[in-house]
C-alpha cells in the first residue's frame, strides 16, 4: 500500500522545490548562503549592514510559485484514491501552510516543502490504536463490535483479530452476529474452529442482539478477556438496518466499535464511514484487502473524515494477514527517503 503515492509524491516534492527555487532566482537572489557571510570576524560597519540586508532578507512564497506543483499533487492524491473533498482540503491546507511563508534565503527549500507535506498528511492520519494496551488497561471482558458495509471483510477480520489476541495471551469468544446472510454462520464457525476460539451462535434469521448478548454473558460467566462481535454487512442508507445495529449496541454495550472497510474503496469510503460514525459511532478503523495493491488513499480519506485511528490493515486471507497500523511509519515511508 502507498507504493504509488510514495513515488509520485517524490515527483511533486521536486516540483514544489523547483517552483520555489525558480522564484528565488527570478528575484535575483541566489539560493545559497551569500558571500557576505564570510566576513572577517569582529568587523562592523558596512559589511555587517550588507549581511543584514542579504542574509536576513526573506523570500515570500507566492501561490503562483507552487500552483503547477499543487495541481499535480491534486491529481496524485486523486489517483491514489484520496476522496475528492479530502484532496481539496489537503491542497487548501498546503496552500495555507506554504503561501506567504517567509523563507530566509539560504534556508533549504526542501525542508519547508517537506515539513508542510508531512504536516498535511500527519494531521490527517492522526495516531494509531494499540489494541493490546487497550485490553490490558480496561475491565474484562472488553467487548468489541465490528461494523461496516457488505463484503468488506468483517468476518475474516474478526477471525484474524481473534487469532492475534489469542497469540498475545488473551482468551477470546466470538459472537456470530451475522444471522442474515446465507452461509454466514457456517463461515465464522469454520474460522473459529480452525483458530481454536469459542463461538456463540444462534439460528440463521435470529435476532443478532440476542446472540451477541449471550456471547457477552458467556464471557462474563467464564472470565473471558475479549468478546469479538461479528455483524451482518449493511448499507448506511438503510434506516432499518442501521436501527438494528443501534439496538445491538444498546444491548451488548460494546467498549469499542470497530468500523471495517476496504483499502480499495474509492470516494464512497468517506460517505459511508461518516454515516456509520454518525449513527452508531466508531472508535477505530480496520482497512482490509491492503494486499490488492491499493493506493492507500482510503486510509487517508477515512481517517480525515471521521478522525478515528486506524487499528489494523488486513493484508490477505490468512489468519496472520493482519498488521497493526502505524501512522508514523507510513509518513516515514512516504517521506523517509529524502535524497
Amino acid at each position: 500500500m502507498f507504493e504509488k503515492l510514495k513515488s509520485r509524491l517524490k515527483e511533486v516534492r521536486n516540483k514544489l522545490d523547483s517552483g520555489i527555487n525558480e522564484a528565488a532566482t527570478r528575484e535575483g537572489q541566489p539560493a545559497e548562503v551569500p558571500a557576505a557571510e564570510k566576513r572577517p570576524a569582529g568587523s562592523t560597519g558596512l559589511v555587517d549592514r550588507v549581511k543584514v540586508l542579504i542574509v536576513d532578507r526573506e523570500l515570500v512564497i507566492s501561490e503562483s510559485d507552487i500552483s503547477e506543483a499543487l495541481s499535480e499533487l491534486e491529481i496524485v492524491l486523486l489517483e491514489n484514491d484520496v476522496a475528492f473533498p479530502v484532496t481539496e482540503e489537503i491542497i487548501a491546507n498546503l496552500v495555507k501552510e506554504l503561501v506567504g511563508k517567509r523563507r530566509k534565503i539560504g534556508e533549504p527549500v526542501d525542508a519547508i516543502v517537506l515539513s508542510a507535506l508531512k504536516k498535511a498528511l500527519g494531521d490527517v492520519l492522526g495516531e494509531g490504536f494499540d489494541i493490546i494496551n487497550y485490553i490490558k488497561t480496561h475491565e474484562h471482558p472488553v467487548k468489541i463490535l465490528f461494523t461496516g458495509v457488505n463484503g468488506t471483510g468483517k468476518t475474516t477480520t474478526v477471525a484474524k483479530i481473534g487469532y492475534f489476541l489469542k497469540k498475545n495471551g488473551f482468551s477470546v469468544v466470538i459472537g456470530a452476529g451475522d444471522t442474515f446472510r446465507a452461509g454466514a454462520i457456517e463461515q465464522i464457525d469454520v474460522h473459529a474452529q480452525r483458530i481454536g476460539i469459542k463461538i456463540i451462535q444462534h439460528q440463521q434469521g435470529g435476532d443478532p442482539s440476542a446472540v451477541l448478548f449471550d456471547t457477552v454473558q458467556y464471557a462474563v460467566a467464564h472470565n473471558v478477556d475479549v468478546v469479538l462481535a461479528d455483524t451482518a454487512g449493511r448499507f448506511h442508507n438503510r434506516a432499518n438496518l442501521m436501527n438494528q445495529l443501534e439496538k445491538i449496541r444498546r444491548v451488548m454495550k460494546p467498549d469499542l466499535i470497530v468500523y471495517v472497510d476496504e483499502a480499495v474503496a474509492g470516494n464512497d469510503a468517506v460517505i459511508r464511514a461518516d454515516e456509520f460514525e454518525k449513527t452508531v459511532g466508531a472508535d477505530a478503523v480496520v482497512l482490509t484487502k491492503a494486499d490488492m495493491d491499493p493506493r492507500g488513499g482510503a486510509a487517508i480519506s477515512i481517517a480525515h473524515t471521521i478522525g478515528k485511528p486506524l487499528m489494523f490493515l488486513g493484508t490477505g486471507q490468512g489468519y496472520d494477514d493482519i498488521s497493526p497500523f502505524s501512522p508514523e511509519k507510513v509518513i516515514e515511508e512516504l517521506f523517509g527517503d529524502v535524497a
Binding site: 448506511h236 474509492g266 464512497d268 495493491d293 491499493p294 493506493r295 488513499g297
Partner: peptide, 29 residues
Amino acid sequence: GQQASEQARRFHEAIAIDGVIITKMDGTA
C-alpha cells in the same frame, strides 16, 4: 476506486472478460 482499471485489465488478460456486472448500486457509491 482507482484500482478498478488495473484489476479489470488483469482479469481481461487472463480470461477475456466479455461483461461487467456492477454490484451494490443500492448504496451510495
